[in-house]
């Protein structure tokens, strides 16, 4: 069997040059400040304590949560429970095939995801233990981290782990001076700056902020405003999904 390293990708199409038309329309027909349609579904897996599947345009993420349970990694005593995240992208999730084995950007995503969720989880309710959040990106169509954060928060809620509030996340790409909400992979490729915001909408607290590129204060304010609006919109969808999932579970119990 030949070694995997000896093959080259086959990619006839390059990414589109212009992602916004002169009339402010994006490639998929959205306006600059429009979200992709989101499909959020808690309790997608049977073995995990809590799980969720989220689909935003072409970004598909599956999250499974285990715990509270004993931590496999840490051995030191801790009064607060630990939140351990592991993010992986499937080998076929991106345009170019990824090798098996964790890469540096997956480690970074895991760290950013953990920070985004830690503030919301009531960690004092499971001292000495940990919760494991396993996230698999099945298809990477842009804004993977934002979808992962929202899905993970839903999965934690689905697992019945005490939380102060749900966490929703939203990102903005700046392309040729214009701010695009919820960018696709093609749009993010052409960006010269990006802002990712994760927040607890009811508590109005920011749990994660990741900014790249050069920003003036005024533009930063604008981008943050846009993200916050997106987070609030997503919050309504998330709560609805969680509520209807709970109703379904209760109805099933009653029949039995």
């Amino acid at each position: 069997m030949a070694r995997r390293d000896t093959s080259v990708p086959y990619q006839p199409q390059s990414r589109p040059e212009a992602v916004v038309s002169d009339t402010g329309e994006r490639l998929d027909g959205r306006g600059l400040e429009e979200f992709r349609s989101a499909f959020l579904s808690p309790h997608a897996l049977s073995q995990a304590a809590g799980s969720a599947y989220a689909e935003c345009g072409k970004t598909k993420v599956m999250v499974g949560v285990y715990g509270p349970r004993q931590s496999a990694r840490a051995t030191a005593f801790s009064e607060q429970g630990r939140v351990q995240c592991d993010v992986k992208l499937a080998s076929f999730a991106t345009r170019q095939r990824r090798r098996f084995g964790q890469s540096t950007d997956e480690r970074e995503l895991s760290g950013l995801l953990a920070t985004a969720l830690e503030a919301a989880v009531l960690r004092h309710t499971f001292p000495k233990s940990c919760i494991d959040i396993y996230c698999l990106v099945l298809e990477s169509g842009g804004s993977e981290l934002t979808v992962a954060i929202t899905a993970a928060a839903m999965a934690i809620a689905d697992a019945g782990i005490a939380m102060a509030d749900v966490v929703t996340a939203c990102s903005v790409s700046r392309v040729a001076g214009q701010l695009l909400l919820d960018p696709t992979a093609d749009e993010a490729f052409r960006e010269d700056g990006s802002v990712l915001l994760a927040m607890m909408p009811a508590a109005n607290l920011v749990t994660q902020l990741v900014v790249t590129g050069e920003w003036s204060s005024a533009q930063m304010k604008q981008a943050l405003c846009l993200c916050m609006g997106g987070c609030l919109q997503l919050d309504a969808v998330t709560r609805k999904a969680l509520a209807s999932s709970e109703e379904q579970a209760l109805a099933a119990m009653r029949i039995e």
Binding site: A119, L205, G213, E214, S217
Partner: peptide
Amino acid sequence: GSLRGITKQGSSGIDL
């Protein structure tokens, strides 16, 4: 004085 990259750290939320 322009901003060039931001990352948040820590387990508490920050209000706006």
